[in-house]
Design a protein around this nucleic acid. Sequence first.
DNA 1: ATTAATTCTGCAACTTTGTTGCAAACCTTT
DNA 2: AAAGGTTTGCAACAAAGTTGCAGAATTAAT
Lengths: 158, 158
Amino acid sequence: MALLTASSAIILNKSRKFTSMETISIDNILKRNQLSVTDSRKKILELFQGNAGALAHSDIEKRTGEKFDRVTIYRTLQTFVEKGIIHTIPTADNSVLYALCKDECTTGHHHDNHVHFVCDNCNVTYCLDSVVTPEVNLPQGFKPQVIDVVVSGICKNC
Amino acid sequence: MALLTASSAIILNKSRKFTSMETISIDNILKRNQLSVTDSRKKILELFQGNAGALAHSDIEKRTGEKFDRVTIYRTLQTFVEKGIIHTIPTADNSVLYALCKDECTTGHHHDNHVHFVCDNCNVTYCLDSVVTPEVNLPQGFKPQVIDVVVSGICKNC
DNA sequence: ATTAATTCTGCAACTTTGTTGCAAACCTTT
DNA sequence: AAAGGTTTGCAACAAAGTTGCAGAATTAAT
């Protein structure tokens, strides 16, 4: 499993164990967004915080050990996207990936102007928060709103 | 239907009727790629040539009037992608879109270094062949291979 | 601390999307 | 026109995603 490999290899978001401080932080994220604090939401948020790479629905299903219903995971991810906690990443192979948003995102208003990188080897998708999307000169009449950039190639861990 | 609107509004690939010359051209595309010339392949190629916007599997199913089996359409699109006749476009909402490739594409070797534009209003996806993908400065250790740029906003016909 | 009100979860059933094997139909070549 | 290979359509299946609803959990109020 590509993403299991990833979790051990990547150290972007510092994959240490959560202290009580951080547990509180997860609770706060949920409360800040008027969401009840439930097991599934806490667990799924933890997964995102503990792993730098993006996650697909199926990854979450596996990593939570089939503890939660498929439907619950779908709905949790939907809710998180709506609230601006996570965002989706466009992929060429038509799989939906999700990753944590940065702080500026709010309900219905995402600011994901960073570049995504998919490794052809280990298959991990990174959010390169430090790389800002470049300008694009469009033909007359086209008004850009959001620019999504997905780079694929070989990542720094491969 | 977003894409029906599109077919009448867009003039990128010149949506005129096909002359016998152009019919021959479709046959040639297939023959050039060692594919037998069949009804479904001709019809699907025609659809792509007649409409500038990108097409999803479901669009093709509707526009061919349920004349061909779902499986045939899947296989035809797969074959066309493999032969370099069409290419897929990454989308944030996880639908697969296909569009005609330019001449330089060959089997297993796509050259789609152009920008894609999705209109938020009419929902049409354009291949902006004239807009070359910009350079992206990646962090140390990341080696880029393919850069996909998808811009969304308002198109020139809206 | 209990209770009432609200929110969330899990189940069941369903829809949509995509895949595979195989026999019949079709296209190409001779 | 017939042999050979290729392509199609059917059936059956697998995977992905959605919806309604009753019961469980969370939150807010007493």
